[in-house]
Amino acid sequence: MLIVISITIYGFSSIDSLIVIPLGWGKPNYDFTKNPLNKETVALGRKIFYDPILSRDSTISCSSCHLSYTAFTHVDHDLSHGINGKIGTRNAPALMNLAWSKSFMWDGAVNHLDMQALAPISHPAEMGNDIENIVAQLQHSASYPNLFKAAFGDTVINGARILKAIAQFELTLISANSKYDQVMRKEPGVHFSTQEENGLLIFRKSCASCHTEPLFTNQQFANNGLAMDTFLKDIGRMKITQNAQDSLCFKIPTLRNIEYSFPYMHDGRFKKLSDVLKHYTSDIQQSSTLSRQLQQPIILSSDQKVDLVAFLLTLTDKSFLYNPIFAYPQK
């Protein structure tokens, strides 16, 4: 029954039997043929995602910084803390619609969803662990060998299987049922208010070239005119490419579920959407790598700002945020 409803709402997908591709979203970037989803592996990935066994001292799980109820971001934390109270340098990004992502992390350091988990696992200010150690711990646990057998056919636990399982769970985190989506699908009885409608027009004129529908990101990197934090001194993507043109460029994040994914920006410097709009309308810092789209000032009246925020709130997808199959797995 659920499947039938999904098909009528979202359209049919032949990409993977467990993934429903929302209409008009295009083909995912993730190659499902190399890691076809199955229920057991998704369940295993979900268990690992919520298991602090991943961290050196068994205190931090993926969900410590990626809470399902806040679009898998670290609510109310500008910078996230890892083992031994260490503080990282960037804001934990929201996790959703990752099958369409072409790169991962604020600077695009990771080129494939499978490999993303290695970054927080090994970072000394996050989980401070290494994948070899995790393989050994899972091998010696009471429950994991059988779960790997259910997922992969035998009890072998290796790095690739752990990473593929986590990726499978993450691939299921699709948010495509916000009010915006329902209006776009012309679902009966769902309409934008006048404010939201105005906000959409402002959005399409001033924001959409980077935060492109339907993913609300064009997947590129850009310098959005933030002054460099003098303590963090984060040069963004240039650290990865060593190309001066990438200085201060960061991944353009999705705006889906933005109501819940505060604080905002790569270092979480803005607590409120009104702070974000103030930045884009009056605080842009000129520099040689400033995004082309921000070279001309964005001018919005206070009414227009209210309308734009009203539209952004239509990107909230409560059926995603409160979906029990994404939450902590109850025994």
């Binding site: 190659d31 190399k34 890691n35 350091a109 990771v110 080129n111 494939h112 969803l113 499978d114 490999m115 290695l118 970054a119 696992i121 090994s122 970072h123 994948i131 070899e132 393989v135 290796n158 790095g159 690739a160 299987r161 990473l163 593929k164 990726a167 990865i240």
Partner: peptide, 24 residues
Amino acid sequence: TNVSGAMGGDLDPTKGMYWAWNSG
């Protein structure tokens, strides 16, 4: 192969031959 995700055998990321913070 560097952009094809997790692989096992000699390519398994447990071999100490994979960079987590700059994929490859």
